[in-house]
Nucleic acid binder design. Structure first.
Lengths: 344, 344
DNA sequence: TTGAAAGCGCTAACAG
DNA sequence: CTGTTAGCGCTTTCAA
């Protein structure tokens, strides 16, 4: 039960603690004889020694931990995974980090919560923040001196690396697709449209497409709530209440689409017969939906991988070159859209 | 950029480092004058001091971190969240931990990987392991001297706290429900049926129900693969290939059911008209399915919460009382089952 | 009510 | 090639 320390190993191997340290870290500046190395390794094995990474990072200032912050952007939600997007992203981050010998320090946060303490506290080597907005908390982080990667955030600041997608262009692509399929009345359904957020970009892309097709964007076509399944159901009710004016909808997240489809069904509106849907993300839900969702595909796995990679790169070369990484988007055609002709 | 340490605060406040420490931790054995306390707090605020938790845990042996291990039990999957169950569970664990001022050290592991290093390394205060099997790695953990909670695991060992559900009973309940609805040919669909795993318990429950209804369990009714969407599709194909013998299926996870439904659809088998489905977990997917899944409900949020609570309790009283916690199950009726009468 | 001093376990110059 | 010597930033007896 007594933890074996580096000293115990040193004693067992008949060398000094630093020698053990050298062997274990294969410190490049020091060279140890094969013979000594072997003795040390034997002792390590015999004693079942496992280095205390806390102590190590205290003295070396590297922790091999990456902090991951998933802020609650939708007020009132306590849990992170109302949107499976986060799960998929985290999964990929974890996997990539582990491949490189890093562990993850995971935390959600209330939006007003202090990001700084969370990270600095633990001496993480880098921080990945998902979908945050500009604010005090972010600024405080800059002083930390560790690389910070913002995922899906429109905070513009040289101090942060960013990784994201062309939200606006993706939305435009999706909406144009519906227009090409003959739709004229097209709804826009999303979470809260906040400044500097992802949804406003998607809203703009929607407007772009509408406008370049000479279609007007009227208020009745805009549905905005929260990014979750339940809001999809709500939006469906709203759609019916507003008189089913639209023949198609661009929905800014697959989860919402899932709820929307369910809600529409309950109101005897068929997808895609009565309402076509193109959504966004292509989380695994998209394939599961019934009908399967035609959606803007983004490579979530790659997003996570790149986020970790950015941290590792930045940590390696101690230069603070600001990197901005934009991942490609594509439209995946499945079953939730039908062509709209001058009809009934 | 220079981190402010406890010494800086001490100097600023004109006291010693230990005094600062006392104030910050409100150490019970020491009492400080309100006046000094105020001076210290002022200095802390002025300098923007944030304690280094690494150093703290090095000397105090508490880290306020909980290690969470999500092993890959299905070989070949690198990512954790092929089953949304994990996401929901993690979400709840994170939330509860945060409420209590704890952070999460998250790691997946290959099954054969060394659990020990992951945890001991960082000096976590407790470990939560999800769905693991007995093995060497687990045993090594015992020597750590920190509380360990096994979630959904049938490892029997006084050294571990466990939290789980009555898998066998739940499966029996589900299967009996189908029998009561008039079904006689009932399939069992699950992930790999391994010894000491959750699936074998559910299999046994299935058998229990079949046998007490005087129904035989034949090999043709058993479908076993991996716990994911794709296997559901595979199972559907298999079902058709085997001649659509069954009128109902008990499926051991909602994700699989999702795939199953999709696969059946592709083969023009309707749910529930041609095949009724009862599944297990009641993740959010269950409601989203079309038809919505009749399923055995378990309170995943509570599971996570209890897991954290067990750690905190065990860490508080340093007694090693072994706790075993079983959460209740219930059947949620939705749309995926129909009554089966002597038909066509 | 406060401070001095001794570590926690490890790394990193710097000597030898 | 290896050991000595200082810390990293904090907690915690023990004395004052």
């Amino acid at each position: 039960m007594k933890r074996v320390s580096i000293k115990d190993v040193a004693k067992e191997a008949g060398v000094s603690a630093s020698t053990v340290s050298y062997v274990l870290n294969s410190t490049p500046t020091e060279s140890i004889s094969p013979e000594t190395a072997r003795r040390v390794m034997d002792a390590v094995k015999k004693l079942g020694y496992i280095p205390n990474l806390n102590a190590r990072s205290l003295s070396s200032r590297r922790s091999n931990m990456i902090g991951v912050l998933i802020p609650q952007t939708e007020p009132g939600k306590e849990l992170m995974f109302s949107n499976p997007f986060y799960g998929e992203l985290l999964s990929s981050i974890e996997y990539t980090a582990r491949q490189h010998g890093y562990h993850l320090l995971l935390s959600g946060t209330k939006e007003d919560q202090d990001y700084l303490s969370i990270a600095q506290n633990r001496g993480v080597d880098g921080i990945i923040i998902v979908g945050t907005y500009p604010g005090e908390n972010l600024n405080a982080l800059k002083q930390l001196g560790v690389p910070i990667v913002l995922v899906d955030s429109y905070v513009k600041d040289e101090a942060f690396h960013t990784i994201g997608i062309e939200d606006r262009e993706g939305a435009r692509m999706a909406t144009r697709y519906l227009i090409e399929k003959g739709h004229r009345q097209i709804a826009f359904v999303s979470g809260s449209i906040r400044e500097n957020g992802v949804n406003i970009k998607r809203y703009q892309g929607y407007c772009d497409a509408m406008q370049s097709a000479g279609l007007s964007v009227d208020e009745q076509s805009i549905y905005s709530g929260t990014v979750d399944y339940d809001y999809g159901i709500t939006a469906a009710k709203e759609y019916v209440a507003r008189g089913k004016k639209q023949t198609a909808a661009f929905v800014s997240a697959d989860v919402i689409s899932m709820g929307l489809i369910k809600g529409l069904q309950q109101n005897h509106v068929r997808v895609p017969e009565d309402l076509s849907i193109v959504s966004f993300d292509d989380v695994y839900l998209a394939r599961m939906a019934n009908p399967a969702l035609t959606t803007v595909h983004q490579d979530i796995g790659e997003k996570g991988k790149q986020a970790v990679q950015l941290i590792l790169d930045a940590a390696g070369f101690k230069e603070h070159r600001h990197t901005e990484c934009i991942l490609p988007l594509s439209l995946v055609e499945r079953e939730s859209v039908r062509e709209w002709r001058n009809q009934p």
